[in-house]
Design a protein around this nucleic acid. Sequence first.
DNA 1: TCAAAAGTGTTGGGATTACACCCATGT
DNA 2: ACATGGGTGTAATCCCAACACTTTTGA
Lengths: 234, 234
Amino acid sequence: MDSSEIGVAVDLVAFTLAGGELCVLMGRRPHPPYPGHFALPGKLRRAGVSVDEVARDLLTRTTGLDRAWMEQLRTFDRPGRHGEAGAMLVPGRDPRGDVLSVGYIAVVAADRVRPEFGGELGWQPIRRLPADIGFDHREIIDYAVRRLRSKLGYSSLGFQFLPEEFTIPELKAMYEAVLGISLNRGNFWRKVLEAGVIEDTGKTRPARGKPAHLYRFTNRAFGLLEEPDGYIGR
Amino acid sequence: MDSSEIGVAVDLVAFTLAGGELCVLMGRRPHPPYPGHFALPGKLRRAGVSVDEVARDLLTRTTGLDRAWMEQLRTFDRPGRHGEAGAMLVPGRDPRGDVLSVGYIAVVAADRVRPEFGGELGWQPIRRLPADIGFDHREIIDYAVRRLRSKLGYSSLGFQFLPEEFTIPELKAMYEAVLGISLNRGNFWRKVLEAGVIEDTGKTRPARGKPAHLYRFTNRAFGLLEEPDGYIGR
DNA sequence: TCAAAAGTGTTGGGATTACACCCATGT
DNA sequence: ACATGGGTGTAATCCCAACACTTTTGA
């Protein structure tokens, strides 16, 4: 890439629930820049291919899934500062050149995750992220976590973490893992049932005590309120 | 621009209150593409200059202001579809080529607006937008209005529409104009005073009836809750 | 029969809503 | 004095957090 050209990259922040914790998909970089560092899955946008398509391709290549909840996060841009003679004074977000990154956020159901896919990739718990993260990817992840937590409150996004059928305690555990707080059992119950967004399947799942009812998500109530903000894909 | 290259543009959605209505800054295009159509102020990003800087420069060139509340909105990208022979099948968002746009949103105080600046530019009321808007700028504006209305509820953004000193009825009128709804006078009063985000200046402004107190914004209360981006933590 | 986890009911208080009423000023 | 718009009080209601209690299973 010529130094006067601008590159456009797409970086993907894919979340899942693993081991009861909120995790993000990252890999260890084999080559410079930032060799040995962790980084988000990323790819350069080529002419004629939209960033949405690049993000979807990234998701498929890294998780094996071709459909999941995704939306654009933000564009991250910090070019390097050059002096009179053209020497670099302050490095930008990508040492290779002037590359801006369009961040995407994805949520993957725990039972759909295939960790072996994509070679070096793995799920990193958000509460114990590696210290050596390349580029500005730590900043991108922090921003993505805030957006995720925020959207959990006013959208049906949370159900994307769960399998087709789930119990209310599992639903509660998901909220607690993502938000990083603990919720009141009784109040959570009433709230989620009165919202009318889940329906009983009639089945139950054995537990250590009383078996729990299995529910499934129904978009009946959310559908009216939720905007088609960033839903990509069918 | 070569057909295999990617262009990065910045488009600015600048809002203000004019004539008691929410308005957006637009100009009429003198040249193709979309000659005679309305469009947002926009500019190509050149190497070494961040999109933030381009957006700030756009604001200065169009409104004469060098500081105002601004934030990145989203990146809009829809390249054209080409057939086997390279012929265009479906046009993209910019007929000139493969240009993605990083949208920005700005809020300008009504008393700071200089409509004569920037030649052809003018403020268009959001409720009566022109039918002939070029590119995908109508989509960008609609998205920006939704974001603006949403952020009004959980951030101090609204005060950016008003001059340094304002009355509570003026504050209420601003909220009503931006949200497009009417609010209860008495409840608005209590809510805004109990929030502790404004302080009395001691001065009054004459009105048709009883003179109204002049207040000024104090970020004391918001400062603790508001994060850099506007997300409120708990 | 006891522990563990699912599921339900009750209650007090803070926030929101609707609306009535008083106050200060120009004409 | 009266119309106009600023400013205040209050009762009804809704929502929510806290917490105690009951139910159903496995060991």
